[in-house]
Structure formats: C-alpha cells, structure tokens
C-alpha cells in the first residue's frame, strides 16, 4: 500500500497539494493552540488546587490575554479563509479551464455502481433517457442518437490520461451518492435531478479507487470503482480496445 497510511493519502492531483497544505497548517495551528492551552490548564489545576493555606479570591482578576487570544484566533481564521480556502475553492470549483484541452467524461451513479460514459471522438455525449434503462444499457443511452454512436460506456472503470484536465459531469439515477477520489482530493455529492461538474488533473500515473462517501443504501460499503491514470499512449490504446469491443457486440 504505497499510497495509503495513517495520514493523508498520497496526492496525485494538481490542486491537491494546496488542500493538503491547508490541512497541515490548520493542524499545526490546532496543535499549538491546544498544547499551549492544555499546559496552562494543567498549571492552573496544580497551582490553584485546594490545600491548606490556599484561599480563593473573590476579586476577579481581569486579563488582557484572552482578548489578544480571541483577536489572534480571529485574525488567523481570516488568513485561513482569504489565503487558503477561498482561492483553493475557486481553483477546485470555478477555474475556467481551457475546455478544448480537457477530457470530458460523464459519471452516472446508481445503487451501487459508477457508470462512466466517454463522449467519443465527436466530444459530445449521446442522449440519455431513463425509459431506455435496461440491464445491458444501465445509463439509458439512446442508441438512435447520432451523437451516441461513438460513445463508450464502462462500469466502475474510470480511465484517464495523465497531465490532462478531466472534467467529470456527475449525475445520479436514484439516490444521493458522493463521488470521491481520495488520492485526487476530489469529493462531490452526486444529486439526482442535477448535473454537477468537477475537474482534476492527475500529476502521475496511478491505480486507485473511486469511493462513495454518502450513505446510499445497503450496498454503500461496496460501491467501489477503479480509477486508472495512465500515460496518453496507454490510455489511447485502452480506449481503442473499448471501441473494438463495442463494435464487436
């Protein structure tokens, strides 16, 4: 298990490093604050314990320190927001991508699988209709739609090329799921009736998992998919194979 351990999983996305940095910074801040606070707490418990000769003071000593502390926490939170959270979120949600360079893919979640639809060479997705859903056609792809002719669908297999922005268009057939790629620092609820886009760009070749992060029924725990990031060449040959298989069937 080279990717996973008792700390953040390995990161393979361009935006993930910033998220990790934020998480580390917050945790250092939390640790410093807590240890300092706790030390003071233990000191107080020891110094002011009841014992012969120790009497409580009715007069309340007023300290400047808590005000500084509160202002300090506030300032730090503003820094966290402005310097980290806002820009990262902007990058993650809103970065206007050069769409022509990006790869588009649809992920359609259902209880309990991830259906993947590639738009094919025309870079446009074929029409879907819930009425056309059959066990063989789980996403209800309209085979008569000319745009659907070259579409490739897979189940639980998401292959993407490395160093290419991937725009994932998320939708659900039934209940709410959450599309999570731990090593890509991507997580997005998949809401039925909506189509939500997320994007990521892999920085290295890797084999990893798609997990469902939102309780979606009794099979939630096994709603697992596979994310394969491979070189452009390998991806192209995998894709060609898929096309061949489709033609054969």
């Amino acid at each position: 298990m080279p990717y996973y351990g008792w700390w953040l999983p390995a990161n393979f996305s361009t935006h993930g490093a910033a998220i990790d940095r934020l998480i580390v910074v917050i945790h250092i801040f939390m640790a410093v604050l807590f240890i300092g606070w706790f030390t003071f707490f233990v000191y107080l418990l020891f110094r002011f314990r009841q014992r012969p000769g120790q009497t409580a003071q009715h007069h309340v000593h007023h300290f400047k320190l808590p005000t500084y502390l509160e202002v300090g926490v506030l300032v730090f939170e503003v820094i966290l927001l402005v310097a980290f959270s806002f820009p990262i979120w902007n990058l993650y949600r809103q970065q206007p991508l050069d769409e022509s360079k990006a790869m588009h893919v649809r992920v359609i979640a259902e209880q309990f699988a991830w259906n993947v639809q590639y738009p094919g060479r025309d870079r446009q997705f074929g029409r879907r209709d819930p009425k056309l859903v059959t066990p063989e056609n789980p996403i209800g792809l309209d085979k008569d739609d000319p745009l659907a002719k070259d579409d490739i669908t897979t189940i639980n297999q998401l292959h993407v090329p490395v160093h290419t922005p991937v725009i994932v268009d998320l939708s659900s057939k039934d209940v709410i799921h959450s599309f999570s790629l731990p090593i890509m620092r991507v997580k997005q609820d998949v809401i039925p009736g909506q189509s939500i886009k997320v994007w990521f760009e892999a920085t290295g070749v890797c084999d990893s998992e798609i997990t469902c992060a939102q309780l979606c029924g009794l099979g939630h725990y096994r709603m697992k998919g596979y994310l394969t990031v491979e070189t452009k060449e390998k991806f192209d040959s995998w894709y060609a194979e898929q096309e061949k298989e489709k033609a054969a069937s």
Binding site: L8, A18, I19, D20, L22, I23, I26, L80, L81, F84, S85, I88, W89, Y92, S178, S180, P182, R185, V186, K187, A213, Q214
Partner: peptide, 10 residues
C-alpha cells in the same frame, strides 16, 4: 473551511 472539507467531508 470548504477547501479542507473537500477531503474531510463525510
């Protein structure tokens, strides 16, 4: 913080 929440949510 929503940016950290991307990884920690759920």
């Amino acid at each position: 913080l929503n940016a950290a929440d991307i990884h920690l949510h759920d």
